[in-house]
Simulated assay, not measured.
Amino acid sequence: MISPSDVAVIIPALNEAPTIGSMVEQVRQLGCVVYVVDDNSGDDTFERAVAAGATTLRLPYTAGAWMAAQAGLRHASRQAKHGYFLTMDGDGQHEPRYIPDLIRAYEREGANTLIGSCPQRGSRARKLAWRLFARLTRLGIVDLTSGFRLYDRKALDALLSREGTLLDYQDIGVLLLLRRRGVTCREYPICMGERVNGHSRIFDSWLDVGRYMMKTFIWIFVDWITGRGPSPRKQEGHDAF
């Protein structure tokens, strides 16, 4: 049985001062250790995270959510007491109350990675893009972009690999990497709230959307040409709920 104290919770945060303190406090009340990575915020995110009791890292420049998450994962992995690592956003979308549910579901599923999945969220255009990517990748994952994920150390080794550092986002490219490394993924349905603070930095403008789509298609194409993607009949370990 996994104890909450075995789980390191990593929260990348950029200008999340209105929400980060409450997020940290709620996670700590569950018994988990919290690591906040301040992605060079322009507000007092760092100070509020420290005041709430998180181990807090401050990056010297804005690296993006995935690189910030990697920094937190790498730091937490050096603490021998942690066997499991959970990433979540600091903007209020991911609710800490679901962490115990994710831990219990993880124990039942026996996978290396469990994704807190909420495919109902997002605009019609975003859902259409998700369906397209799901068909192209054949990952068998419904919510491809959720960053609310619980990883074990096998998954962590893949995330912190040299290939993992080449990624710009923490969604489809990461899932493809995990599949190539033989890491099994499952999903668990949760509800996600609206952002209490800020907005999507991927879908902030058409330019950002275009950049995201282009990079995602590149990762999918690379997965195809290397022959590492599965056939339609081989999706074990990446089943949707």
Rank of each mutant, 00 (worst) to 15 (best):
D168V: 07
R28M: 12
D157S: 15
Q79I: 13
Q170T: 04
R97I: 08
G83N: 14
N15R: 14
S117V: 03
P96K: 10
T113Q: 08
K215A: 11
W206T: 09
R74T: 04
R78S: 13
I190Q: 02
L102M: 15
A49Q: 05
I11G: 05
T184C: 06
D6H: 15
R149I: 13
R228M: 08
L178R: 03
Y169N: 13
G90Q: 05
Q26T: 02
G110W: 08
A13R: 01
D168P: 02
T87R: 09
D171F: 00
E187Y: 05
W130V: 13
W219S: 09
H238K: 09
S231K: 14
R180I: 01
E47C: 06
R97Q: 14
S41N: 08
P60V: 07
R108W: 10
A134G: 13
A71N: 11
W206I: 08
G116P: 00
R28P: 01
A125F: 12
H199W: 11
E95D: 15
L14D: 02
A52N: 01
L178H: 09
T113D: 04
A68H: 04
T56C: 12
D91T: 04
Q170D: 10
G173D: 04
L114R: 01
I172H: 00
Y35F: 15
I11D: 02
V24R: 00
M23G: 03
D44C: 09
G182I: 10
T165L: 14
S200K: 00
G198Y: 04
R162G: 10
G122P: 05
